[in-house]
Structures are given as C-alpha cells and as structure tokens.
Design a protein around this nucleic acid. Structure first.
Length: 147
DNA sequence: ATTCTCACA
DNA sequence: TGTGAGTA
C-alpha cells in the first residue's frame, strides 16, 4: 500500500539511527540547504522521501566524490521537469524528488542567465547529465550500511 | 527522554 | 565531524 511518502514522521534521532548519520551531520545538511525536513514545535521531522534523498545524498557525498558545494550545484542546475516536460500536476506528485529544499519545479537555470551569457548547449548538457544522475541515484536500491 | 542551538576541539 | 553545555 502506498502511504504518503511526503508525510514527515521521523524525528532526527530515528533518522540518525536508521541511516547511521550523526544528528549533527543531519542538521548540517539542513543548514547547507541540502535537505528540508518539516518542523513541528521546533523539532525536525523527516518523511520517507527525505530518507530516500538522504540515502542518495550520502552516496553522492561518500562514494561519488562530491562535496556539499558540488551537490548544491547539482541541485541548482537540475530542473528535471523541464527536461522531461512534466505537466504541473505531475511535478507536484513526483514521488522521487519531492521534499527537496527547493521544489524541483521552482528551480530555474540561472547560472548563465544572470551573466547574460547564452551557452544553451552547455546548459542542456548539464541538465541532462544531472537529471540522469539524480534519476539513477533515486532509483537505486539502497543497502543500509548498518555496520 | 529527546531535541535544539552554539561553541570548541 | 563529533561532543558537551544549557535549554525547552
């Protein structure tokens, strides 16, 4: 049965235990804008989508040689909906990438625009590349590194 | 019992 | 990144 993956259910302690990530680290990820857990009464609560994203983030950070800055960059240049041509109603119910710090549908390729530069090819290339990376990452079966 | 923020190593 | 302090 498909429950709401967007519902914030887990407090930071549970998430930390489930993913073996120090609470401090989780807070830093949030501080860096890489994750946006819900807030209830000043407390953080993560959804299943958040967990999935965290697993993906972990892989990006630990295995794919990316750092926080790198992941941030990735997120700023990956308007997947534009690449896939998703309708608005599709975007709003996208199960994979949903609880991102910045909703994917709000992302706008701005790197070049701000500079008044028009490197369309480069932009498209990056978007596709990022899209593929994100898709693969989110789809991957994550093996808990429960050491 | 838990989490929060902040400072410090 | 991880810990300890002092709260809420």
């Amino acid at each position: 049965m498909e429950v709401e993956n967007t519902k914030a259910l887990y407090p930071i302690g549970i998430v930390a235990e489930l993913l073996n990530i120090h609470p401090r680290t989780l807070r830093i990820y949030e501080q860096e804008g890489l994750i946006k857990p819900a807030r209830r009464g000043g407390k953080r609560f993560y959804s299943n989508n958040d967990l999935q994203w965290l697993k993906c983030l972990r892989r990006l950070l630990n295995e794919d040689g990316l750092n926080i800055a790198g992941v941030k960059k990735l997120l700023t240049v990956a308007p997947c909906w534009e690449i896939r041509g998703c309708e608005e109603f599709v975007r709003k119910s996208c199960p994979a990438i949903l609880n991102f710090p910045v909703p994917c549908w709000d992302l706008v390729p701005r790197a070049c625009k701000e500079k008044g530069l028009v490197c369309t090819e480069c932009e498209v290339y990056l978007k596709k590349k990022n899209h593929v990376m994100m898709q693969r990452c989110m789809e991957e079966k994550v093996q808990d590194s429960t050491a």
